[in-house]
Structure formats: C-alpha cells, structure tokens
Amino acid sequence: MKSPATIGSSGGGAFGEAALRCEGVTKAFQGVHAVNGAGFDVPRGQVTALIGPNGAGKTTLVNILSGFMTCDRGREFIGATEVTNWPSHRIARMGLMRTFQLSRELGGLTVLENLLVAAKDQAGEVLWNIFLRPGMVRRQERDNIERALDLLETYGLYRLRDARASELSGGQKKLLEISRAVMAQPNILLLDEPMAGVNPALIDRIGGYILDLKRDGVTVLMVEHNLNVVERICDHVIVLAEGRTLAEGRLSGLRENEQVVKAYLGEVIDAGTVR
C-alpha cells in the first residue's frame, strides 16, 4: 500500500480490504462541530495512524467508532457489517477493542483480574453454569488464567499480577490497558495515544508490541502525536483537522503536502514531535 497522499480522500478501496470504514461522520456538541464529515478506510492487517492538531476530533471519533457516543450523521462499517451507532458492548463483540487516552483501570481488581474480565464468552458469567456446569467453568477459567499470565509476562507485568490496578504507575497502566484489550482477542484495536506520557524506553516497547499485534493479524488504528513513532510503526496515516479527513497516505508523502503541513505538520516539522 504505497499510494501517494490524496487530498480529501473519501476513503476509497473495496469492501473487505477495509477492516473498519466510516463515512461522513458528524458530531456536534452544543453547536461545536467536534467531528465534521470525517470518512476513511482502515486497511486490514495494517497499523494506521490518526493524527491531527489538538482538538481535531480524534478522541471524539474514537468514541463514536467504538460506540461510546452516537454520531449525528454518517455511517460506520466493521468489515461488511454496518454498525452505525451500535452500543459499545456490541461493537466490542464484533472484535473491535479500544483503549482510553487517559488510562482507565479497574482499580479494585488485581492486574490479573483486569485481564480476566476481558476474556470473551465466559461460561462463568452465566449464573446457572456456575452451579450446573462447575467443571466447564473451572476449565475455561484455568485456560484464561494461563493466557492472561502469558500476556502479563509478555507485557512485563507478571510480577504485578496480584497488585490492585489502582496501585500501578502511569506507564504500567498504559501497558495494562493494551494487554487487557489484547486479552479480548480483538480483530481491530483502537488505541488513543497509547504512548502519551510514558518514558522513551517504554515508547519503544509499546511500539514493539503494536508491531507484534500486526504480525498476529490485528488491524490497529492509533491516535499518535509523536511523528517518529508514526514513521517507524505505521503503514498508513490519516490526517484529521477540524473534524474532517484532510489527507491520507504514507507519512513521507504527507510531509510534502502543503495543506497538511499548514494544518498540522508545520508546527511540528522542526521539533519532530508535538505533545
């Protein structure tokens, strides 16, 4: 996918190629248009960056795509299924998981439990199974615990498995958010600034995790301000400005796009990054 940057792309590409697709999404808060006709395709199996100045509507868009807000106008598709304004738990069950810009941990639960909650289709969530099929519940729980501990090892949180999630540091909470989403075996992962406010070494590590997920076939859409990170791990970039899709393509192409530079890159091209 080495298409050059295209201005005002409506998000071309056939169905099936896009894991996630939105068209003309609009959302106003008391007259303020936070998102104003954004539309794009998120290519399957790739890492896509969603960039744009502060207040461009990135988080609002993530909230709409993950079902936490309804949009005023527009449509959303996961694969070929239209999921416009579905509630968040149904979108999650379609295999789309999201993380939050400000980490939200389940503070009273342990780190391990935070992951276990995320496991899909748990027999033990159905009350009569607890009493009528205890063996099945126990077996499934044991498998889930093993998988969760594997993930905690991978994400360097194994030692903290029994700590209450509220006791973690900021960076550890970021890792917990990502590993918890991964525990749910998503097809599509929406990450809202997964590297904001973490130390540089951890940024590298999180970047590595995202590439691992891509290798496992997960489609990733991540909001990210750090262009070095975008350059290194993202295949595709979508630029959002004032709630509209301004351009998409590879970052190198976008750097030469005058409109993009003016709207966003201009202020960061020297610094290399914005915070």
Binding site: S88, H89, A92, G107, G108, V117, A184
Partner: peptide, 17 residues
C-alpha cells in the same frame, strides 16, 4: 468479577464487551 468491573468503571466494562 464482571460485577466488580462494572462497579469500578462501567465504561471500561462496556469497552470489554
């Protein structure tokens, strides 16, 4: 556990399906 997840943060619980 799912009940306690909802108690701690129902938004996260919904995000987890």
């Amino acid at each position: 556990r799912t009940f306690r997840a909802i108690r701690d943060d129902d938004v996260v619980a919904a995000a987890l399906g």
